[in-house]
């Protein structure tokens, strides 16, 4: 039992690091690509063909990978004024219910997102030779991670290892 907990904690640490690196990398990549697009249009007078399609797809990838990260760190925006003042037992029950809903939505994103991504087959993007599925699969991957993270935290909540206050949503942005 103890070793299982350690294993989960270690996997959780590595997952969080990977998500952190992915978010920094994707944000940095967008920053670099948009500046390349600007320089090539205004300095070299030669518009890059991918200037709209590629950044938009990368932003979508950042959205779903980032959503998993924010689920892990409880940084999604929410309204916490009422739950915050609930009695501890009720609070725990409400937070458990929320985790189940989050996990359920993650499963839907993973399942139906997987079907949709697979339907793109080997189709290429219009302006650059990258498969559309490369970006489309970030949604089912993000959804699966959201479900996985929520289930783990639900187990932690029910076994008393996670405090319900750590699961409250971020109340400002």
């Amino acid at each position: 039992m103890a070793s299982l907990t350690t294993l989960i904690a270690r996997l959780d640490l590595w997952l969080t690091r990977a998500l952190d690196a992915a978010v920094i990398g994707l944000a940095g990549l967008l920053f670099v690509l948009l500046n390349i697009a600007v320089v090539s249009r205004f300095v070299f007078n030669n518009s890059v063909s991918w200037s709209e399609e590629l950044p938009a797809h990368i932003l979508a990838a950042l959205t779903f990978i980032g959503a998993a990260y924010l689920t892990r760190t409880s940084e999604h925006l929410g309204f916490d004024a009422v739950v915050r003042i609930l009695p501890p037992g009720v609070k725990r029950a409400v937070m458990a219910g929320n985790l189940i809903l989050i996990a359920g939505f993650g499963v839907l994103l993973a399942w139906y997102g997987g079907i949709a991504a697979a339907s793109f087959g080997s189709r290429m993007m219009i302006s650059v030779d990258l498969p559309m599925a490369l970006f489309r699969y970030t949604m089912p991957v993000g959804g699966a991670l959201i479900a996985l993270i929520s289930v783990t935290r639900l187990a932690g909540l029910l076994t008393g290892q996670v405090h319900p206050d750590d699961l409250l949503p971020e109340s400002d942005a």
Binding site: A67, H76, L77, G78, F79, D80, V82, V83, R84, V94, M95, G97, N98, L101, I102, F105, L168, P169, E170
Partner: peptide
């Protein structure tokens, strides 16, 4: 919303 579920969810 009142139950504190994050807005996106």
């Amino acid at each position: 919303l009142i139950a504190g579920l994050p807005i996106a969810f």
